[in-house]
């Protein structure tokens, strides 16, 4: 694992998200009502909607363009829709958000 400090937890709104640019495309970093943090690909498999602009509810995200709903843990689309978004390892330490850089590098190799 190669933990990269991407910013402070407080920079992500509660029940909101922020975007991180990477060489593999944008990653959305979410913060739930319970202060948990998740990271997924920022782009919706439907028509590339920006997932970091969606509504966060429970551990789910609703895409702002056409309301597909994804699990933040597994990346799977919920309900009738089919598809998935990539998920990345992320954790919080001392109020800082750390994203796993190895996983991002691996994603590109795959």
């Amino acid at each position: 694992m190669n933990w990269i400090d991407i910013g402070a937890l407080d920079d992500i709104p509660l029940r909101g998200a922020r975007r991180v640019k990477t060489t593999q495309g944008c990653v959305a970093v979410f913060r739930t009502a319970e202060d948990e943090v998740f990271a997924t690909s920022a782009s919706c498999p439907h028509r590339n909607g920006p997932l970091d602009e969606g509504i966060v509810h429970g551990r789910k995200i609703t895409c702002p363009l056409h309301n597909w709903v994804f699990s933040l843990e597994t990346g799977e689309a919920q309900g009738a829709d089919e598809g998935a978004i990539a998920t990345y390892a992320v954790r919080v330490e001392n109020g800082r958000v750390l994203l796993d850089g190895t996983a991002l590098a691996r994603a590109s190799a795959a």
Binding site: I4, R18, V20, T22, G101, T102
Partner: peptide
């Protein structure tokens, strides 16, 4: 402006 910009830009980090 800070909130509307990406939280971080890792494309500038040296590749591993």
């Amino acid at each position: 402006a800070r909130q509307y910009a990406p939280l971080a830009d890792l494309t500038l980090e040296a590749a591993e």
